[in-house]
Simulated scan of single mutants.
Amino acid sequence: MLKYLMLYEDRGIEIEYAESQYVWDSNGRKYLDMHTGHGVAFLGHRNPHIVNTIVDQMSKVMTLSTSFRVKIREEMLEVLSKVVPDRYEYVYLLNSGSEAVEFALKISRKVTGRKKIIYFTNSFHGRTFGALSVTANQKYRKGFEPLLPETMMLRYNDLSEIDKAVDEQTAAVILELIQGEGGINVASEEFVSELRRRTMDVGAILIIDEIQTGFGRTGSIWLSEQYGVYPDILLAGKAIGGGFPVSVIFMPHDIGVKIERGSHGSTYGGNPLACAAVKASTEVLINDSVPQKAYEKGNMFFELLRRELKDIRIVREIRGAGLMIGIDLRIEPTNIIKELQNEGILALKSGTTVLRLLPPYVITNIDIEYAVKVIARTIASQISS
């Protein structure tokens, strides 16, 4: 009998059913899901419109090389164009966030003819070799070195290093506006503005990784919109497929036109089911005003958390945007996550000391009020223990 290689910690429950903001285990117990598969189920588990669109496409064509045209791809592009800034003319679909990062790094070196790639402390961009080379945490890198050469790590939110480090030898700078795995650290407006200015000055490519922050979670379709910054390459994933594995890379004309056939490829990338998932997810995003709802519910969540947690001394800070929430603690949050699960709430960790909440946009006000009370009680209980 084969054994599944468990590369994530087993949470000790078997999930049998999922719908909207809830999942049920094999014992019939219901959980409020604020883990959402590391943020994938932002549009809710088994969103009916997304499921129906995928099932409809399955009855026609399930898999097809992008060498062949298919109607659903054109339909996806038409709808997706409504939520992407006008400067982006080219789009390419892959299967995971790491793959999108890999392609972005390849594009940067190909287009600029340079080698150096800059990333930041506490960054996380994936676990494949290229993505891992721009991921800061040593626990992910250990045992896999040497990684890509000519990468350079700078301090996140530190303006003092930018002018010296980002130079005429730099191919790309890759940045998360909120570091999802690294601690829900939020980039300052000054930091992002300086990176945009400097990359333009030296002709380097600015890659913004919105695989976790994008597609409505942070209260706007793209978090970069809130900064007034348009990167040279924009990466999306997780929520954009509504639960189907897909990632997207967006490029302007001056970059996309330089990518030759054969420069990259993917057996499954851009398959008809992925196109159907992205089309349907985008329609949900537009038709149900998802970013606005994430903004409003996020504001409520932050307000209640700050009120309920303000006197709990092991709470350092509450930060994030929209429905991407981090509670920075003075202790490691593993026990809190376990206790929350026992109370019927699924959450996850970010960085070393941050309790991370990634609820779907369909979470209700009643859910939020309940979750805040349980979270406050659970965190407070750790003081005496």
Results as ranks from 00 to 15, higher is better:
residue 182 G to H: 05
residue 124 F to N: 07
residue 112 T to K: 05
residue 144 F to V: 07
residue 99 E to Q: 15
residue 101 V to T: 11
residue 89 E to D: 06
residue 105 L to G: 04
residue 103 F to E: 09
residue 153 M to G: 08
residue 176 E to A: 12
residue 106 K to C: 08
residue 174 I to H: 03
residue 138 Q to I: 14
residue 114 R to A: 00
residue 144 F to G: 01
residue 142 K to C: 07
residue 84 V to F: 01
residue 109 R to V: 00
residue 132 L to A: 07
residue 153 M to A: 14
residue 118 I to Y: 03
residue 174 I to Y: 01
residue 159 L to P: 00
residue 94 L to A: 13
residue 130 G to Y: 15
residue 151 T to F: 06
residue 81 S to K: 15
residue 118 I to E: 03
residue 142 K to Q: 12
residue 126 G to L: 05
residue 185 N to F: 12
residue 155 R to H: 13
residue 160 S to D: 08
residue 162 I to W: 00
residue 143 G to E: 07
residue 146 P to G: 05
residue 129 F to K: 15
residue 127 R to A: 14
residue 149 P to W: 09
residue 150 E to N: 15
residue 157 N to E: 07
residue 187 A to F: 06
residue 89 E to F: 04
residue 131 A to I: 02
residue 92 Y to P: 04
residue 108 S to F: 03
residue 86 D to R: 13
residue 125 H to I: 07
residue 179 Q to L: 08
residue 137 N to S: 13
residue 133 S to Q: 06
residue 176 E to T: 10
residue 114 R to D: 00
residue 175 L to R: 09
residue 169 Q to M: 14
residue 147 L to Q: 04
residue 132 L to M: 11
residue 90 Y to S: 01
residue 159 L to K: 09
residue 99 E to Y: 10
residue 145 E to D: 11
residue 94 L to R: 10
residue 180 G to E: 04
residue 142 K to T: 12
residue 166 V to E: 02
residue 102 E to W: 08
residue 164 K to M: 13
residue 120 F to P: 05
residue 126 G to I: 06
residue 146 P to A: 06
residue 165 A to D: 08
residue 98 S to N: 12
residue 116 K to M: 09
residue 108 S to N: 03
residue 139 K to E: 14
residue 184 I to E: 11
residue 180 G to P: 09
residue 84 V to M: 04
residue 148 L to E: 14
residue 159 L to C: 09
residue 154 L to I: 08
residue 188 S to C: 02
residue 187 A to H: 02
residue 162 I to A: 01
residue 128 T to M: 13
residue 151 T to W: 05
residue 127 R to C: 12
residue 81 S to E: 14
residue 149 P to E: 11
residue 180 G to T: 08
residue 136 A to D: 15
residue 126 G to D: 06
residue 151 T to A: 06
residue 178 I to F: 05
residue 107 I to D: 02
residue 157 N to S: 07
residue 146 P to E: 06
residue 95 N to G: 12
residue 161 E to K: 02
residue 117 I to C: 02
residue 161 E to Y: 04
residue 89 E to I: 10
residue 155 R to P: 04
residue 152 M to P: 01
residue 92 Y to W: 13
residue 185 N to S: 10
residue 120 F to Q: 09
residue 134 V to K: 01
residue 86 D to L: 09
residue 146 P to M: 07
residue 160 S to Y: 04
residue 120 F to Y: 15
residue 96 S to H: 10
residue 149 P to N: 10
residue 97 G to H: 06
residue 81 S to C: 07
residue 165 A to E: 12
residue 171 A to Q: 01
residue 181 E to K: 13
residue 80 L to P: 01
residue 150 E to R: 13
residue 156 Y to D: 05
residue 137 N to V: 10
residue 117 I to E: 02
residue 119 Y to W: 10
residue 107 I to E: 04
residue 111 V to Q: 00
residue 98 S to Q: 11
residue 148 L to M: 14
residue 79 V to L: 11
residue 134 V to C: 04
residue 95 N to V: 13
residue 173 V to H: 03
residue 108 S to V: 02
residue 155 R to A: 14
residue 89 E to H: 08
residue 88 Y to K: 02
residue 187 A to W: 03
